[in-house]
Measured scan of single mutants.
Amino acid sequence: MTFKLIINGKTLKGETTTEAVDAATAEKVFKQYFNDNGIDGEWTYDDATKTFTITE
């Protein structure tokens, strides 16, 4: 399955996707992406659209 990440950061904005077997696996991938890029904020997940959103 394809999961999308929408980034609404102070310095970084955009979208990316990842292929994962489930939302929990995608969450781990995206959290690592947050850490690697110094993004910290509030994030949500919409199961209907398989979209994670992080807002700094």
Results as ranks from 00 to 15, higher is better:
Lys50Cys: 05
Thr16Ser: 08
Asp36Asn: 11
Lys4Trp: 08
Asn37Ser: 14
Ala23Phe: 09
Val21Tyr: 07
Val29Ala: 08
Val21Cys: 08
Gly9Pro: 02
Lys28Asp: 05
Glu15Ala: 06
Gly41Ile: 08
Tyr45Asn: 00
Thr53His: 05
Asp40Arg: 13
Tyr45Gln: 00
Asp46Ile: 03
Gly41Ala: 08
Thr55Leu: 06
Met1Ser: 12
Ile6Trp: 04
Glu56Asp: 06
Thr2Tyr: 07
Glu15Pro: 06
Lys13Pro: 07
Gly41Val: 07
Gln32Leu: 12
Lys28Gly: 08
Lys50Thr: 04
Thr55Gln: 07
Lys50Glu: 01
Val21Ser: 12
Leu5Asp: 01
Thr44Val: 08
Ile39Leu: 13
Lys50Asn: 07
Gly41Cys: 07
Leu5Gly: 02
Asn37Lys: 15
Thr11Met: 08
Ile7Ser: 03
Asn35Asp: 13
Lys31Arg: 14
Lys50Gly: 03
Ile39Cys: 09
Glu27Asp: 03
Thr55Ala: 05
Trp43Met: 13
Thr49Phe: 04
Thr25Ser: 13
Gly41Pro: 03
Asn8Met: 12
Tyr33Gly: 03
Asp46Phe: 02
Met1Tyr: 14
Ile39Ser: 04
Thr55Pro: 01
Ile39Ala: 05
Phe52Met: 00
Phe30Asp: 00
Asp36Arg: 09
Ile7Thr: 03
Asn8Gly: 03
Val21Leu: 13
Asp47Gln: 07
Val29Gln: 09
Phe30Lys: 00
Phe34Ala: 15
Thr44Ser: 11
Lys4Ile: 14
Asp36Gly: 11
Asp40Ile: 13
Asp22Gly: 01
Lys31Asp: 03
Asp22Val: 01
Gly9Ile: 15
Gly14Thr: 14
Ala20Cys: 06
Gly41Asp: 03
Phe52Ile: 02
Asp47Cys: 05
Thr44Cys: 08
Glu56Cys: 11
Thr2Ile: 14
Asn8Tyr: 11
Ile7Ala: 03
Met1Asn: 12
Val21Met: 12
Ala20His: 02
Asp47Val: 09
Asn35Tyr: 13
Leu12Asp: 09
Thr51His: 01
Leu12Gly: 12
Ala48Glu: 12
Asn8Val: 12
Tyr33Thr: 04
Ala20Trp: 02
Gly9Trp: 12
Thr44Lys: 07
Lys4Asp: 02
Ile54Asp: 00
Lys4His: 13
Gly9Leu: 15
Ala26Cys: 02
Phe34Lys: 11
Gln32Thr: 11
Thr55Val: 11
Leu5Asn: 01
Ala23Met: 11
Lys13Tyr: 11
Asn37Asp: 06
Lys31Gln: 10
Glu27Phe: 15
Ala23Ile: 06
Thr17Asp: 04
Thr49Val: 05
Thr25Pro: 00
Thr44Tyr: 08
Glu15Ile: 07
Ile6Met: 04
Glu42Tyr: 12
Phe3Asn: 01
Ala20Tyr: 03
Phe30Ala: 03
Ala48Leu: 09
Gly38Ile: 13
Ile6Pro: 00
Phe3His: 01
Lys10Ser: 12
Phe30Met: 03
Ala26Asn: 00
Lys4Glu: 03
Asn35His: 14
Gly41Ser: 04
Asp22Thr: 03
Val21Lys: 13
Glu42Gln: 09
Ala24Trp: 12
Thr11Ala: 08
Phe52Asn: 00
Asp47Thr: 06
Glu56Ile: 14
Lys4Gln: 04
Asn35Phe: 12
Ala20Met: 02
Ala20Thr: 05
Gly9Arg: 06
Ile7Gly: 02
Glu56Lys: 03
Lys4Met: 06
Thr55Asp: 05
Thr53Glu: 04
Asp47Ile: 06
Asp36Tyr: 06
Thr17Tyr: 14
Tyr33Met: 13
Asn37Gln: 13
Gly9Gln: 07
Thr55His: 07
Gly9Met: 15
Gln32Gly: 07
Asp40Met: 14
Asp47Ser: 12
Thr44Met: 09
Tyr33Ala: 06
Lys28Phe: 08
Phe34Gly: 15
Phe52Thr: 00
Thr44Arg: 07
Lys13Ser: 13
Thr16Gly: 06
Ala23Asp: 03
Tyr33His: 05
Asp40Val: 15
Met1His: 14
Thr17Pro: 02
Phe30Leu: 04
Gly38Asn: 12
Thr11Pro: 05
Asp40Leu: 13
Phe30Cys: 03
Lys31Tyr: 06
Leu5Phe: 09
Ala20Arg: 02
Glu42Ala: 09
Val29Cys: 06
Ala26Val: 02
Gly14Ser: 09
Gln32Lys: 13
Tyr33Phe: 11
Thr49Glu: 05
Glu27Gln: 07
Thr49Asn: 05
Ile7Leu: 10
Lys10Gly: 10
Met1Asp: 10
Ala23Lys: 13
Gly41Thr: 05
Asp36Glu: 12
Ala26His: 01
Thr17Val: 08
Leu12Cys: 15
Lys13Trp: 13
Asn35Ile: 15
Asp22Met: 02
Gly41Phe: 14
Phe34Arg: 07
Phe52Pro: 00
Phe30Ser: 01
Ala26Asp: 00
